[in-house]
Design a binder for these strands. Sequence first.
DNA 1: CTGTTAGCGCCTTCAG
DNA 2: CTGAAGGCGCTAACAG
Lengths: 294, 294
Amino acid sequence: MYNRHAAGLRRKGSKTLGLVVTDIRNPYFADLAMGVEEAAADAGYTLLVGYSRDDVEQQNKHLATMVEQQAEGIVLLPAIGSEKEQLSRIVDRGKVPVVQLARSISPEFGYVGADNRQAARLIAEHVAALGASAAVLIGGPAGSSAREDRLAGLAEGFAGTPVRFDPSQAVPSRNNPHDGADAFASAVDRGTVPEVVLAYSDAVAIGIYARLRRLGLEPGRDVAVASFDDVPLAELLQPPLTSVATHPRQVGRDAGLSLLDSIATGVPPAPSPPLATSLRIRASTASWRTSIRH
Amino acid sequence: MYNRHAAGLRRKGSKTLGLVVTDIRNPYFADLAMGVEEAAADAGYTLLVGYSRDDVEQQNKHLATMVEQQAEGIVLLPAIGSEKEQLSRIVDRGKVPVVQLARSISPEFGYVGADNRQAARLIAEHVAALGASAAVLIGGPAGSSAREDRLAGLAEGFAGTPVRFDPSQAVPSRNNPHDGADAFASAVDRGTVPEVVLAYSDAVAIGIYARLRRLGLEPGRDVAVASFDDVPLAELLQPPLTSVATHPRQVGRDAGLSLLDSIATGVPPAPSPPLATSLRIRASTASWRTSIRH
DNA sequence: CTGTTAGCGCCTTCAG
DNA sequence: CTGAAGGCGCTAACAG
């Protein structure tokens, strides 16, 4: 029976990639991971997988192990708080190419992600067209590049419209329904209920739906909700959720392909241009102020 | 920089486990995978991961590669249609121990899973207590051991109650909202809308909610819905979904631990007793026939 | 074209 | 206690 490790020792090259991601119970991250695996498997590569759960320690342990395990390259969704010097040290010793996925901590590595600024501008334009007068962003990990880009895109998109939007009023949270609900609650606590809630992700939006109902408010009717990612669940929610599709599977695939290309050519991976997004308008915004009040 | 492959060549043993699962965009499977990874990482093992997407070909390719990659053992959620002889052949050549996860195709390998019969009995008793007169199971992969066990447990649980339940009326489907919705639609097409719908999983239940609404029916009010798995989303749905918790993270962890134990002791893994489940009663059944009709 | 051999990086053994 | 050497399974280079 064939031993690839012995072969790799001789030939240099393990036919193995590493993938370190946060918590895949969010289907958005799961789809990213499946995209990476698809690219790897199609190229005859096997995937070493580690879940950081957004813990930098755990992430770095995974990365170090993968370097020892002879991964020819690593796709990394950087945990919040990752530092580029640390990452460089872990990974440069073995000259292992790295492609950052969905979040970027440094342009010195590769990067593949959705066009978060464009996505945010699309949402802002749509919300302005609804005739809203104020909006707030709820959730998302503080300091992540994806969240910064979304904040910037929203500010851009709302500029010159009557919609008030203050990035400093945004409340960060971990990227799951529970923490998203808490973030929304704390936004409500410190003022009035916003007319339009922009959720950092569909996961956060689900938490916001639940919390609105606990306040006796119906999402889509009393408060408009829009979100990012467009996971399959978005259109199945009640009301169906307006969301910008960020195509995680394709982002994952492209990250894997970028890494494989770097391995094949020897050229270190560089940041790629962000991938286009598209707005899916559904009842959570479309029915706002058009439905009959009780 | 340390080369574990060279070390493994000398010492025998790669400190690597394999994990082959279907499609992790269902958070239930994602949690299973995270449980396995947790056990592996805690023991200093790295995980090779492959997604079969319930395709036997792809699964077997992953398995063969993992054997070549010197995985010391493999956790496998068998794709529908897996054959034990094939699996034996792929895996026995390298004498790699296998633990089946959540589904079993043969007692000759290890197995860790939830107690699906008990889970189904819990649901049946609850539905009987509601005073329903008929129930139907919707969704779930035809022929999987988990589905067979749930069908058997439901039949057992409904025996001696006034609730009509016919296993042959159950409609199988792939384990996701979209296909679950289709399965429900075909059940409705061939008769009347059931009083109580038992979804094979929370993922399927989500599809059923959406389809009920397209029929102008409100889940929990017009039709009671209960389900299996109790993913975090279940209690956040509207109405909150009654579901039996099958504790995927713990099942995954135990599968990983069982495999690691087999590797450490040299004793081939054997099927473990199924893990206890617990019913979470929520409004999708609790408010049925108690809420005020419009 | 088939057969032999050296050496990839590590660990273990055995000698000094 | 420190240091040199052999061999794990494979491939590439070279000899016959």
